[in-house]
Structure formats: C-alpha cells, structure tokens
Computed example of a mutant assay.
Amino acid sequence: MITSIFNKSKQINFIIVLFIAVLAFLNARTNTIIEPISILFVAKQITVFFICIITILVFNFIITKNSLTQSNNYEVLLFSLFLLTLVQTTSNSNILISNFFVLLGLRRIISLRSQKNIKSKLFDAALCIAIASLFYFWAILFFIAFLFSLIFYSDNNIRHWIIPFIGVATVFSISVGVSIVVYNDFFEIFKSSRSVSYDFSPYNSTKYLVAITMLFSFGIWSSIFYLQSIKKKKKDLRASFKIVIIAAIIAFVLILLAPKKNGSEFLFLFAPLSIIITNYIEIVDDKWFKEVFLGVLVLIPFWLLVL
C-alpha cells in the first residue's frame, strides 16, 4: 500500500509529506512555547516552517538532478518521517539554516561528476559550507567532502585543491567586515559554539532511545547493501553515491561532537540517510518485506507522538 503510493513521483506524495512536516512542526511547539503570541512570533514561526519546506524541496531537487534514487518519492517521505521522529529538528532555526546551506554545498560537490565548471562549483560549495558553519560551527566538518570528491574524481589539478580554501577565506573576510560594521568587533559575528560535549544523558528517555535506535538500526542495515550496490552503479555515478555515504559519516561525527545534545543535531543526518535507505528499498524484491520495512518506518514516528 505505502510502496504503491510513493513508488512513483506524484503530487499527492508531496501533500502527504507536507502534512507530516506540519505535524512535526506543530508537535515540536506543543507545551514548549515560552514567548507571548504576537505578530513577530507568528512571523518567526512561519519563516522557520518555510525553511523546513524549502529544505525538503531542495533535497528532492538534488536527488532528481543527480539520479541518486529512482523516480519515486521515498526519500522525501523518509526525510519528513525523520522530522516527525525527532521533532526537535524543526525548532532550532540556526541548525535548519545551516543544514540548508550544507545541502546546497553537497549539491555542488555531487554535480562535479559532469566535469563542467569545476572551479565555480568548488568555490560555490565551499562558500555554502562556510556560511553553514557561521550558523552551526561543526557544519565545517562537511568541508571534508571536498577532499574526498577530489580524490574520487582523481583530480590532480593543484588549483582545484586550493579553490575551496579561497571560498572559505571569502566568507571569513566578508563576515569580519560585517562584524566590524554591525558589532564594532572583529569576531562577534562568529558566535556559534565551538565547544564539544560527550554527555549523552539528554538522550536518556524513551522517545530519544526509540528514535535513535530506529535511525541507526535501519541506517546501518541499509548502508551494508548500499555500499555493495555502488559497484553496480554507472561509473560516472559511483563518486556521487560515495559522497552520500561520506556525508552520512560526517553527520554522525557531528552528532557525537555536538555541544548541545537536544536532538536537533540529527537534522544533518536525515538527507544522506534518506538516500541510503531509499536505495535499499529500491533493491528489495520481496513486496511484503518492503511493505513491512517501510511500514515500520512510518508507524514508529506516529507512535512516538503518543508516548
């Protein structure tokens, strides 16, 4: 039933995804609103929700443009379900903006497979990830994806290795200038926390444990088959699929390092994990197993709402 609905790209799929995103957004704010309801507050919430939706649309565009999955909507369904699993991911505006720019950066990195406009793509990607790090410092870890992308494409052009650093330097220079003008201080704008925390006690609740267990168990299982399937992909697509698994690993490391562990840091994992699990669903031949597999992923987030 579920697989037949999302097996092909349809408008109704995005209506369902929108409903799940709205449910996650509203649930995250139930009993947590501490600000008085005002026009400014409502405008802020609408803006945050708009970022959530535009992130899903950009994610779908990246998938379609780079053929990272077949012509279906499993990946956006999974992304929205993950938002519902950990509704805290819709609350932190800085992480939402940071993740949005990370996706834009990964889009440019993955598009390197065309071997066209390499310099501009490297510069744009570095620019996006550097901007992402302004909102959430540890997003800078995704800069590692550059190194792997250049290795995967066997790029020996020294200028291509330097360009990403120029992109970062550009953002740094502009940010310092803005900081001087706005705050009369060189580095006030770089306020994102650079600290590290290994205190995982905030996850010690039923909702967190179930959610994290679901993400990692399904993610690890799917990753095993995902890695095996890369060899079967077209040669020009293999590097793109490798970058996805690298992005998932980087997101996992980011979660471990996150200075404040409240669940919102998992947002960086959702995009690569959705692609990995979708690729696994696509290679499953047993229809009933596929239905049960996807059915569990759908039911758990809704079950967590009533816990």
Rank of each mutant, 00 (worst) to 15 (best):
F82E: 03
Y203E: 05
V182N: 07
R238A: 14
K261G: 09
N92I: 12
I162V: 13
S111D: 14
S197H: 09
E265F: 05
I283D: 01
T89W: 01
L150D: 07
P272F: 10
V76D: 01
V17I: 11
L237D: 15
G167R: 00
A21M: 08
L267A: 10
I212R: 09
S38H: 04
K287Q: 13
K65E: 14
K232T: 15
I131M: 11
S93L: 07
E188D: 08
L294K: 04
K191S: 10
N99W: 04
D124S: 15
V210Y: 06
A271F: 14
I20V: 14
T170D: 00
K287N: 13
I129R: 02
F59D: 02
L227R: 12
L81Q: 11
Q45T: 03
G167W: 01
A271Y: 08
A126Y: 04
S195G: 14
F82R: 07
F61Y: 12
V181T: 09
T170K: 00
L299C: 07
I33K: 08
I220P: 00
F200W: 11
S175H: 04
I140Y: 03
L307E: 05
P301M: 05
A43M: 07
V196M: 13
L81N: 07
S67Y: 08
V298H: 10
L307F: 09
K119R: 12
D155S: 13
V171M: 01
F241T: 00
L104Q: 06
E35N: 08
L134G: 02
L299F: 13
L254P: 00
N13K: 07
I144D: 00
L96Q: 07
I5L: 13
I174C: 04
N7C: 08
K121H: 11
R238T: 14
F25V: 10
I34C: 06
L104Y: 09
L237C: 03
Y153R: 11
V22N: 00
I243S: 01
Y183H: 13
K65M: 08
A24T: 03
